[in-house]
């Protein structure tokens, strides 16, 4: 329906609808705009601008000085690399282990399956925070194989930030729900043809699983990139392994440089935001396609 054929009433209703949509959009976006604009302003102006609409506008003494200062204050490049490395590794391992496990839960009959599945699903209601301190004592006793032979204790490493986070019940659950709706006969036919379980997994099932893979990847990405805060503080002492969220603490000194804080928050947020905006269709479509199964 084009604008020309609309009655006046229809037009004004459409206008009202857009105004409502835009008003709501403002509510969702204003803190983000405030953050980005503030990151360009010197401290005193940033604080005085909160009194007016200027808080959301790039006006006054605008520069990238805060960014320069932030990069001088903390090794931001290193932190971003660490975060992305930890996030990407966890994500890949997670996708593989969770989907393989879900495959066996849905397509294969094996002794103890229902028991194992029940335990896995039950851990969904075990928040990480409840086990953080005992886990710290535990990872400190675990062995690791490196070029220097077997070493004990995982503190100060990438693996301590990766491996405990690889598998969570939610991911397995999402895969299971998705696999349940795939046509069973495809799998059974391949089985009759003599395909191995693993062949069926990666030749038949995984190619059909785009949406759920995307969903798990997104949720895991957000969890790992955004929420790694308490755990790294506990297990990582060397600067070389610190992720980006821990870096925030570099900015809370006596006389907090608020402009730099805003710059750092923007730097933290930009990669996710770019990633999201580039892939937003896939983002939303995939969550939508896996979300409905109750």
């Amino acid at each position: 329906m084009s604008m020309h054929t609309m009655s006046l009433g229809q037009q004004s209703r459409l206008l009202g609808r857009y105004l409502l949509l835009m008003f709501i959009a403002c509510i969702f976006i204003f803190p983000i705009v405030f953050m980005m604009m503030s990151s360009l302003k010197p401290d005193f102006q940033l604080l005085s601008d909160t009194a007016s609409i200027r808080a959301f506008l790039p006006v006054g003494d605008i520069s990238l000085d805060n960014y320069r200062a932030a990069f001088d204050r903390a090794p931001i490049g290193l932190f971003i690399f660490n975060s992305i490395f930890i996030t990407a590794t966890t994500l890949l391992l997670s996708l593989f282990l969770a989907s393989v496990a879900a495959f066996s839960f849905v397509f294969i009959d094996w002794r103890g399956k229902s028991f194992v599945l029940a335990i896995v699903v039950a851990t969904y209601i075990l928040p990480f925070e409840t086990v953080a301190v005992p886990l710290l004592l535990l990872v400190n006793k675990l062995p690791w194989l490196s070029s220097e032979g077997v070493t004990w204790g995982w503190l100060n490493s990438y693996q301590v930030q990766i491996i405990p986070w690889v598998v969570r019940a939610l991911e397995i659950f999402l895969f299971v729900q998705y696999f349940k709706d795939l046509p069973k006969d495809l799998v059974e036919a391949a089985r009759v043809d003599g395909a191995s379980w693993f062949q069926i997994y990666y030749k038949i099932v995984m190619p059909l699983s785009g949406p759920v893979i995307a969903t798990v990847a997104i949720l895991k990405f957000l969890e790992m990139y955004n929420n790694q805060f308490i755990w790294p503080t506990m297990v990582v002492q060397e600067e070389g392994y610190r992720p980006i969220m821990v870096g925030l603490q570099y900015f809370f000194q006596l006389n907090t440089p608020w402009g730099e804080v805003m710059a750092y928050l923007t730097i933290i947020t930009l990669p996710v935001l770019v990633f999201y905006l580039a892939l937003q269709r896939a983002f939303i479509a995939s969550i939508a396609s896996t979300g409905v199964k109750g």
Binding site: A101, S104, I108, D109, W110, G112, K113, V120, E188, F198
Partner: peptide, 16 residues
């Protein structure tokens, strides 16, 4: 056809 104790445990084992 669906039976597979070894395959089942091997695939679910690491995550579990």
């Amino acid at each position: 056809i669906k039976r597979g104790n070894v395959a089942g445990w091997l695939m679910a084992g690491p995550a579990f």
